[in-house]
Amino acid sequence: MKMLIKYNELPIKEKLLFLEALFFVFLAKILLLFLPFKLCVSILSVNKKNYETPELEQLKQIKKAIRRTRWLSFWKNQCIVMSIASRWMLQRRHIHSLLSLGVAFDENKKLKAHAWLRTGEIGIVEKGGNFHELYNF
């Protein structure tokens, strides 16, 4: 109930951005569940030549909208899903981004994977650790 009250207090522009982020987050999760990862990567690797220079405020709003969807994401691999959804949101606005996949070992010597997305020097989905970058597109 508290979340609905917070949502209702948002300005209309932020509400719409949140709904867009939520749509893309769930679409990305469905894509990852039902399609092979190699096909998912090829879908995301669309290159457009007419990129626009993003405004810092616009990037911050997209980042905030994606982060707001976390409380509705009940699955473990949130980073890849949020990175894909963010990528789609940026592509809709003709903003170039770089989605990276990496691995690291935790304190128990267990391998863990992470995905992050950045545009220029701005991290939309943060790298957050000492991950070794294996692949980016």
Rank of each mutant, 00 (worst) to 15 (best):
residue 63 K to F: 07
residue 37 F to V: 06
residue 83 S to H: 06
residue 128 G to S: 10
residue 113 A to E: 05
residue 111 L to G: 09
residue 88 W to I: 10
residue 135 Y to R: 15
residue 122 I to G: 00
residue 99 L to P: 00
residue 101 L to A: 06
residue 79 C to N: 03
residue 47 N to G: 02
residue 92 R to L: 12
residue 61 Q to P: 04
residue 29 K to V: 02
residue 53 T to I: 12
residue 17 L to V: 01
residue 40 C to E: 04
residue 70 R to H: 04
residue 109 K to Y: 14
residue 23 F to W: 08
residue 40 C to Q: 07
residue 11 P to T: 08
residue 104 A to T: 10
residue 88 W to A: 03
residue 34 F to L: 12
residue 66 I to P: 04
residue 38 K to H: 09
residue 53 T to E: 15
residue 137 F to N: 14
residue 96 H to A: 14
residue 95 I to Q: 02
residue 105 F to L: 14
residue 37 F to A: 04
residue 107 E to H: 06
residue 89 M to Y: 10
residue 4 L to S: 01
residue 91 Q to D: 14
residue 122 I to L: 03
residue 131 F to L: 02
residue 21 A to H: 00
residue 109 K to H: 14
residue 129 G to N: 01
residue 103 V to T: 06
residue 22 L to F: 02
residue 72 L to P: 05
residue 73 S to I: 15
residue 103 V to Q: 01
residue 101 L to M: 12
residue 127 K to A: 03
residue 69 T to E: 00
residue 20 E to I: 06
residue 128 G to K: 13
residue 100 S to W: 01
residue 18 F to S: 01
residue 90 L to E: 03
residue 36 P to D: 04
residue 78 Q to A: 14
residue 69 T to Q: 04
residue 93 R to P: 05
residue 65 A to H: 04
residue 83 S to D: 11
residue 134 L to V: 07
residue 60 K to P: 02
residue 107 E to F: 08
residue 31 L to E: 12
residue 8 N to E: 13
residue 134 L to Y: 00
residue 123 G to K: 04
residue 114 H to M: 07
residue 137 F to H: 10
residue 75 W to Q: 10
residue 82 M to A: 15
residue 74 F to M: 03
residue 82 M to N: 15
residue 19 L to T: 06
residue 8 N to M: 15
residue 107 E to K: 12
residue 127 K to I: 05
residue 85 A to S: 07
residue 133 E to C: 14
residue 72 L to E: 04
residue 125 V to G: 02
residue 21 A to D: 01
residue 113 A to F: 09
residue 105 F to W: 01
residue 40 C to M: 04
residue 116 W to T: 12
residue 3 M to F: 13
residue 55 E to K: 13
residue 71 W to A: 03
residue 120 G to D: 08
residue 5 I to F: 00
residue 94 H to I: 05
residue 2 K to I: 09
residue 90 L to S: 09
residue 106 D to M: 11
residue 63 K to S: 12
residue 6 K to D: 02
residue 21 A to Y: 00
residue 38 K to S: 15
residue 48 K to H: 13
residue 81 V to C: 00
residue 133 E to M: 10
residue 40 C to W: 00
residue 135 Y to W: 15
residue 104 A to F: 01
residue 75 W to G: 07
residue 11 P to C: 05
residue 70 R to A: 11
residue 2 K to C: 05
residue 116 W to A: 08
residue 92 R to W: 03
residue 2 K to M: 09
residue 132 H to R: 11
residue 86 S to P: 10
residue 132 H to K: 14
residue 30 I to C: 09
residue 135 Y to D: 12
residue 125 V to H: 01
residue 52 E to W: 02
residue 114 H to W: 02
residue 62 I to H: 06
residue 102 G to C: 09
residue 9 E to K: 11
residue 87 R to N: 13
residue 88 W to Y: 13
residue 130 N to Y: 08
